[in-house]
C-alpha cells in the first residue's frame, strides 16, 4: 500500500517544478530587484525610499486605511445579513448561488462599468465614497460567504443550552453564537482586506486622486520601466501580506485554544 502511494505521488512532480519556476522564483526576482540600484549592483536606497519618500509611504498608509474601511463596512453589513439568512429556513445552496455565484458570472470590470454608470447617475462618481462603495460592492460576497457558512453550520445546542439556562437573547448571542462564528469572521476579513491591496482598478475607475491605491503606483512605475522602485514597493506589500496572514493564523489558533478551554472543542475550526 505505502509503496503504491509513493508511486502516485510522482504526479505532483510536474507541478512542483512549475511552481518553482513560475511562483517561487518570481518572488525571489522581486526581492532581488528591490535591493538593486537602477544602474545595477546592490543598493538599499530604493527600498529606503519607500519609507522616506512621503509620496510612497502616504500611498501605502492610504491603501491600508482604505482597505480597513472597506473591510469594516463589509463586516458590519455582512454579519447581520448572514445571521438573518442563516436563521431563516432557506435552501442553503440557493442562497449561496444567488448571492455569491451569479455576480461572479459577469466580468468584474463590466460590473464596475455598470456601477460607475449608476454612481454618475446619482451624481457621486469620482468621489471617495464612490471608491469605497465600489470596493464593498466587489468584495461583499467574500465577507458574506464565510460568515454565512460558519453560522449555518453552527452547533445550535450551545445556544439552546444558554437559552434553557435562562440567558436572554442578547447574552446568548454574545456568549455562544458570536464566539463560535469568529473563524468565519476572521476568514471573511482576510478574504476582503488582502485583495483590497490589489484592487486599484476599482478605486481608479470610481474614485479620485485621494483614493489611488499602492497597486496603481506600482503599475505606473512598471509602465515607466522603473522596475527597482516598483519591486521595492511590491516587496513591502509582500511583507505586509505575510504579516496579515501571520496575525490571522495566530488569532485563529488563539480562538481555537480559547474555544477548547471553555469546553467548545473545535466547533469553530471544523467550519473552515
Amino acid at each position: 500500500m505505502r509503496k503504491r502511494a509513493v508511486g502516485k505521488g510522482i504526479f505532483a512532480l510536474p507541478y512542483a517544478a512549475v511552481c518553482v519556476i513560475f511562483v517561487v522564483f518570481p518572488l525571489l526576482l522581486v526581492v532581488a530587484y528591490a535591493f538593486r540600484a537602477p544602474e545595477g549592483g546592490f543598493s538599499l536606497s530604493t527600498l529606503a525610499d519607500v519609507f522616506t519618500n512621503p509620496s510612497n509611504y502616504i500611498s501605502l498608509l492610504r491603501t491600508i486605511g482604505i482597505a480597513l474601511l472597506a473591510t469594516a463596512i463589509c463586516l458590519l453589513l455582512a454579519y447581520p445579513i448572514a445571521f438573518i439568512l442563516a436563521a431563516s429556513p432557506f435552501n442553503k445552496i440557493a442562497v449561496l448561488a444567488l448571492l455569491f455565484v451569479i455576480p461572479m458570472w459577469m466580468n468584474f470590470m463590466l460590473r464596475m462599468f455598470a456601477l460607475q454608470s449608476i454612481l454618475s447617475m446619482m451624481g457621486i462618481a469620482n468621489t471617495f465614497a464612490a471608491a469605497i462603495i465600489g470596493l464593498v460592492y466587489d468584495f461583499f460576497p467574500f465577507m458574506l460567504l464565510p460568515i454565512y457558512t460558519s453560522l449555518v453550520n453552527l452547533d445550535r445546542s450551545y445556544s439552546e443550552a444558554a437559552d434553557d439556562l435562562g440567558a436572554g437573547a442578547v447574552t446568548t448571542f454574545l456568549r455562544t453564537t458570536l464566539p463560535l462564528s469568529v473563524p468565519g469572521i476572521l476568514s471573511g476579513i482576510t478574504m476582503v482586506f488582502m485583495p483590497c491591496f490589489s484592487a486599484y482598478a476599482v478605486t481608479d475607475v470610481l474614485g479620485n486622486s485621494d483614493t489611488t491605491l499602492i497597486g496603481r503606483k506600482i503599475a505606473v512605475l512598471f509602465d515607466l520601466q522603473e522596475w527597482e522602485a516598483g519591486s521595492a514597493l511590491s516587496l513591502v506589500l509582500l511583507v505586509l501580506v505575510m504579516l496579515t496572514m501571520l496575525i490571522g493564523t495566530l488569532l485563529q489558533r488563539r480562538n481555537k485554544a480559547k474555544g477548547s478551554a471553555s469546553a467548545v472543542p473545535n466547533a469553530g475550526g471544523r467550519l473552515l
Binding site: P26, L27, L29, V30
Partner: peptide, 16 residues
C-alpha cells in the same frame, strides 16, 4: 498565489 497580493504576483510574472 492564492494568498499573495495579486499585484505582487503580477510584478513577479513581469520580472520573470
Amino acid at each position: 498565489t492564492v494568498v499573495n497580493a495579486e499585484v505582487v504576483t503580477a510584478v513577479g510574472f513581469y520580472l520573470l
